[in-house]
Write a protein that binds this DNA or RNA. Structure first.
Length: 493
RNA sequence: GCGGAAAUAGCUCAGCUGGUAGAGCAUCAGUUUCCCAAACUGAAGGCCGCGGGUUCGAAUCCCGUUUUCCGCUCCA
């Protein structure tokens, strides 16, 4: 990371805090690792990003509908999805090589070696002890066995081991007031499963025909081993996901379509295309037959913002198996090749999944600019967030030029007329220039100033954030001028 | 998790070899009425991240801890 981009990232983080976008969680208690809160401006920007996504995905597509499923779900769902078994291994690190191993695998290797050397007694005994320790989830005992049997790291050759730790990315809690009777339940590590387990409910109640999609915005939780780089990797985060159910065999085509559609959504905000790239997964997850990430060029390098995955029928088939409920869809459409309906099948799924918090961060980074306005006479600069007007937390600020002569009253009157439609701010403190700069810092696209002339002819000046230029307009036109600029039509039409 | 660095006012930071906390900006109240920051007067704001130790005395030295950043690792 170069010095200037490092600086940029730091400045964005301080700016986010100073202007009420993002605060560290529980800050007065020293914070909580990798958890953040959104402040008064942050929540507006975040809500606007959600609206943009929801409108683009749900409202603009007749065959995509929304869903809001619960965070708590039946524990078996996570067995079916592979989250329970796939990520609950006892791990141990070697401090010298800094490599991480599965503790049970190291012991298995040792057992195999004992067998090979003809020390079957030792092999059997170790096998029993290891099985007992695993069954009892006795992690310290696993470490003792590794030490006792003098297992060395194949890389460093040393026996400088850390503690054995259980890695499970899922947070768990108890359901039911009495802990003894309670079932262990998990906070969802992804929102996708809520869609899969409801897909037939939605399909039947909404009379959906394949292909169709279900979209959801919601919180997910992952107990990351390490979480860093501000809001890039958080333990509690928000996803915007859409699962698109298609006829088997057509997944490639839909995958490509969504891959393109989703990138366009990003670029519509005005970001330079060079800031984005696709990244193809070569090592595919257990559920996928194709996977691309949309990556953004953050100050610390390209990082995933959104994933487009072809999940096959893995999830639905797994749920059919675990729940013993049929997950099939009857497709009445006639197959031109056979002349018969396509009939019953488990649909294939294309997933688009975007990290809202990452989207938020990249929006801030993109918008943030420290602009040098110096002239020969005077040094000057301003910090401006060049947010798309649709995304700006505050759409317009209304100022009386001075706070007497009836100007504040007039300004309030104009504000009252507009505040039903737009999120506005009123300010009368400090010199007018200072107020303009304050609004620049939170990305407000318009500042409306009421002056003495307003009292005579009802005109005001409207000052534009990006150009700093001013125009005098009739106050009756404000509704339309602001409305046109902040309309979702600019992004969706 | 390993290694490195850091934590002092809302923000950016100063505070020397230990002697009881400071600036700029921001904030608040007033003055000014000036259409693009930093005009004038005044005010508020800090358990110097937290806990322990050394010392007559710790923001400063030592230990622990938490949080953050960087590199490696991990990312089903």
């Amino acid at each position: 990371m170069s010095k200037s981009t490092d600086e940029l990232f730091k400045n964005v983080i301080s700016h986010a805090k100073e202007y009420g976008f993002v605060f560290p969680s529980s800050e007065i208690y020293d914070g909580l690792s990798a958890v953040y809160d959104y402040g008064q401006n942050g929540v507006e920007l975040k809500n606007n990003l959600k609206t943009y996504w929801w409108k683009a995905m749900v409202q603009m597509h007749e065959n995509i509908v929304g869903l809001d499923s619960a965070i708590f779900m039946h524990p078996t769902i996570w067995k079916a999805s592979g989250h329970v078994d796939g990520f609950s291994d006892p791990m141990i690190d070697n401090k010298d090589s800094q490599k991480r191993y599965r503790a049970d695998q190291l012991l298995e290797d040792k057992i195999a070696r004992y067998d090979k050397d003809g020390k079957t007694d030792k092999a059997e005994q170790l096998q029993i002890e290891m099985d007992n320790a695993l069954k009892a989830e006795n992690l310290p005992r696993l470490r003792e066995l590794i030490i006792e049997h003098e297992i060395a790291d194949p890389v460093s050759g040393t026996r400088n081991w850390t503690e054995v730790r259980q890695f499970n990315l899922m947070f768990s809690t108890q359901m039911g007031a009495v802990a003894d009777d309670a079932d262990l339940i998990y906070l969802r590590p992804e929102t996708a499963q809520g869609i899969f387990v409801n897909y037939l409910n939605v399909q039947k109640s909404g009379r959906m025909k394949i292909p169709f999609g279900i979209a959801q915005i919601g919180k997910a939780f992952r107990n990351e081993v390490i979480a860093r780089q501000f809001i890039i990797r958080m333990r509690e985060f928000e996803q915007m996901e859409m699962q698109y159910f298609v006829r088997p065999g057509t997944q490639k085509e839909w995958f490509n379509k969504w891959k393109e559609t989703r990138l366009k959504w990003h670029l519509a905000l005005g970001t330079e295309p060079e800031k984005y790239r696709y990244h193809e997964h070569t090592k595919l997850a257990h559920y996928a037959d194709a996977a691309y990430d949309i990556e953004f060029d953050f100050p610390f390098g390209f990082k995933e913002v959104e994933g487009i995955h072809s999940r096959t029928d893995f999830d639905l088939s797994q749920h059919q198996k675990f729940s013993t409920k049929k997950m099939q869809y009857f497709d009445p459409e006639v197959d031109p090749e056979t002349g018969k309906p396509f009939g019953n099948y488990i649909p294939y799924v294309i997933e688009t999944s975007i990290g809202l918090d990452r989207m938020f961060l990249l929006t801030m980074i993109n918008a943030f600019e420290e602009e040098d306005l110096s002239t020969e006479e005077k040094q000057d600069s301003r910090t401006v967030l060049r947010l798309h007007p649709c995304l700006a937390p505050v759409k317009a600020a209304i100022f009386p030029l001075i706070k007497k002569d009836g100007l504040p009253e007039k300004a309030r009157e104009i504000m009252d007329r507009l505040k039903v439609d737009f999120n506005l701010q009123y300010e009368e403190k400090d010199a007018i220039g200072k107020r303009y700069r304050r609004q620049d810092a939170i990305g407000t696209p318009f500042c409306i100033t009421v002056d003495h002339q307003t009292l005579e002819d009802d005109t005001v000046t409207i000052r534009y954030r990006d150009t700093m230029m001013q125009e005098r307009v009739n106050s009756a036109e404000l509704q339309k001028i602001i409305g046109d600029k902040v309309s979702w039509r600019n992004l969706l039409a």
